[in-house]
């Protein structure tokens, strides 16, 4: 089957498209052909050999649903896509709204619902967690610079200043809060989130939910190396039943449909896990789970095709990923083609 995949921006802030494609290429139950759906002529995935068999530029989410739909229709006319896996947070709302129209074209998806996207929204997560007795850092929403003056009422420094979609800064004093606030305001708009800073170490889980509350697969990972942007550059699968139980609970309470990544902070002080974020799509390290025995992107597609699949029950502990940089060399003509034609 032919699958369109977004997020081929395997840069220093990598999108999950490339590892999703690699996982699908290793699928054993389905035969896959991969199409890259890209936003920029310089997305590294375009230049990797044996990755997508064809790549198409698609319009940015900010340019509107109709543009996106028209473009996908055009691509579909040429490629006959069976499936699309969107991999970026900012495009998910759009795809959720387009789901039925894509289905009418014969393109399947397996996406969270609008309500699920709202729960995991950085502004709503706090309520969700307190409701279900899951530990979560305290946070408040900021919609104007004036609101910042209420910070000392709620927190002691340092605090985390977070954008509604991406990016976070740790601020040790009010001046640093203002700096982070201004950067985020310009880039992602309001609201901006001020969050309690929890000292500890970060743990992540990649998981897949069937939409009925069941966890089809889940692999926890400890980052071994973190870049200055906070991205894991190496990590190892670990064995921690508490993390898995928490994951099952979250999947059950949200009835999550689709892949996700859970980000936890294990507090130095209390040794407990605090849920920092639910990312509503596979993470950029999802190929580690595949290598450890749980091919979650493949399972996602089989779930969408209503195949009966048994949940994964194990994975290889101690599997490591190390991200590296590798320069792809090509001629200007490749770049020219994608820039002027929008497809290659």
């Amino acid at each position: 089957m032919k699958i369109g995949v977004t997020g081929l921006n395997a840069t220093d802030n990598p999108g999950p498209g490339v590892p999703v494609i690699r996982s699908l290429q290793e699928a054993t139950h389905i035969k896959t052909e991969l199409i890259g759906l890209i936003y920029d002529s310089l997305e590294p995935g375009i230049y990797m050999d044996n990755l997508a068999q064809k790549n198409y530029l698609i319009p940015y989410p900010s340019s509107g649903l109709e543009n996106m739909f028209e473009r996908i229709k055009y691509i579909h006319d040429k490629e006959h896509l069976d499936f699309i896996i969107p991999n970026l947070d900012s495009e998910l709302f759009g795809f959720v709204k387009l789901k039925n129209r894509l289905n009418e074209l014969g393109i399947k998806t397996f996406l969270p619902t609008f309500e699920q996207l709202m729960i995991r929204g950085k502004d709503k997560l706090f309520d969700f967690c307190t409701q279900h007795d899951i530990k979560v850092p305290k946070n408040i929403l900021i919609t104007s610079q004036n609101d910042l003056y209420s910070i000392p009422k709620h927190f002691t420094y340092p605090v985390v200043v977070k954008g509604i979609f991406y990016e976070a800064y740790i601020a040790n004093n009010f001046e640093e809060v203002i700096t982070g606030f201004n950067k985020l305001r310009v880039k992602w708009g309001f609201p901006i989130i001020i969050q309690e800073y929890i000292a500890g170490s970060e743990y992540n889980v990649v998981a897949l939910g069937d939409g009925k509350g069941n966890t089809i697969g889940a692999v926890p990972m400890k980052k071994l190396y973190i870049t200055d942007k906070g991205k894991g550059w190496a990590g190892v699968t670990i064995n921690d039943s508490t993390l898995l139980e928490l994951t099952h609970k979250i999947m059950q309470k949200t009835e999550w449909q689709s892949g996700l990544e859970l980000e936890f902070m294990k507090s130095n002080e209390t040794n407990e896990y605090y849920l920092l974020e639910i990312n509503p799509r596979f993470p950029a390290w999802v190929h580690l789970a595949t290598a450890a025995g749980q091919n979650l992107p493949e399972a996602l597609i089989r779930l969408a095709l209503s195949e009966n699949i048994d949940p994964f029950t194990s994975y290889k502990i101690g599997t490591i990923f190390i991200r590296g940089s590798w320069d792809f060399i090509t001629d200007m003509s490749v770049f020219e083609k994608i820039t002027t034609m929008g497809e290659i």
Binding site: D40, S41, P59, M341, G342
Partner: peptide
């Protein structure tokens, strides 16, 4: 052509 702004989907018009 600027990276990050290079998206006009080739020669297709937007709306």
């Amino acid at each position: 052509n600027y990276s990050g702004l290079m998206n006009k989907m080739g020669s297709a018009t937007l709306t």
